[in-house]
Amino acid sequence: MEDLGVDVAQAQLAMEQEVDGMLQQLTDAMESGGLPALANEVQEIRQKVRDVTAQVAVTGPPNVGKTTLISTALRLSAETAALLQHAPKPAPCFQPGRPRVIFWELPAIGGASFCVNTYLRQVDVDKYTGFLILSCTEFSREMLGLASELRRIGKPFCLIRSKIDVRRRCYRKREFADEVLCALRRQPLPHLDLESAVVRLFYLDCRDSEDFDFKPCVQALQDASPSALLRHSLLVSLSYLSNKFQLKTSLKQLTPIWAIHSLVVDPVGLAGLPYQVNARFLVDQIYFYRLILGIDFQALKVQAKRLRLPTFVLSDELRAGLPCSLSEVDVVAELTKWTALKVPVANSKLKWVPLLRQLPGGEISGAAVIRLLDFMVTQYMIDVYRIESKIAAVLRGE
Rank of each mutant, 00 (worst) to 15 (best):
K351T: 06
G366D: 04
T339F: 05
K351N: 07
L373M: 07
R371F: 00
L355A: 09
A346S: 13
E363P: 02
L373Q: 03
V332H: 08
A367I: 02
P360A: 11
F375C: 11
M376Q: 12
M376Y: 07
L335P: 02
K351L: 08
P354W: 11
I364D: 02
I370P: 01
P354M: 13
P354N: 10
A346N: 07
L359S: 08
P360W: 09
S348A: 15
N347A: 15
A368V: 01
V332L: 14
Q379E: 15
R357L: 13
R357Q: 14
L335W: 02
D374Q: 12
W338P: 00
L373S: 01
N347D: 14
V377K: 01
V353M: 09
Q358C: 13
V353N: 09
L341K: 14
I364E: 07
K351G: 05
V369G: 04
A346C: 09
A340P: 07
S348Q: 15
W338C: 00
I370K: 02
A346T: 06
P360C: 12
L359D: 03
P360L: 12
E334H: 08
V345K: 10
M376W: 03
V377F: 03
I364G: 00
Q379R: 15
Q358G: 09
D374S: 11
A333H: 10
